[in-house]
């Protein structure tokens, strides 16, 4: 009878381990280099946003497209679980506020206005 307790105990321990180790092998949902090789600027800065709307690979692609439309974005890396987007940019061309305005811009489709992305937080890395 007592051995039956092994099952819920194992379940509890293994789920706990799963949640604790979840950041051990963080792999992005999307890593999209935009300015590569010779096009990559000499000085690159990084900003991290938490974005409502970054849910999966597809929405990450949409985010990258909108965030980079003003130019100066070097790369976009997203993590769907934490809804975070790390954007590298050329500080001589753009800045975090312009990038934010670009991805939060309303989009009109068939006469209907959508706002696909909403920023929840913004942290400049360096």
């Amino acid at each position: 009878m007592k051995k039956a307790l092994i099952i819920p105990a194992a379940i509890a321990v293994l789920i706990l381990v799963a949640f604790v180790t979840v950041n051990a092998y963080r792999v992005p949902t999307l890593h999209l280099p935009i300015l590569e090789g010779d096009a990559r600027p000499a000085t690159v800065r990084t900003v991290e946003y938490v974005v409502d709307g970054v849910r999966c690979r597809g929405t990450s692609m949409g985010f990258a497209r909108m965030a980079s439309q003003g130019g100066g974005v070097v790369s976009v890396t997203t993590y769907a679980r934490t809804r975070s987007a790390i954007v590298e940019y050329d500080p001589t061309v753009t800045d975090p506020d312009q990038i934010r305005e670009a991805f939060m811009a309303p989009v009109v489709r068939d006469g209907v206005t959508y706002q696909f992305f909403n920023m929840l937080s913004q942290t400049e890395r360096d």
Binding site: N23, Y25, V27, T29, H31, R55, C56
Partner: peptide, 13 residues
């Protein structure tokens, strides 16, 4: 080296 669709490291763990 990327997750597909909505999957994340939590699914892996």
């Amino acid at each position: 080296k990327a997750y597909t669709c909505r999957l994340t490291e939590l699914n892996m763990s």
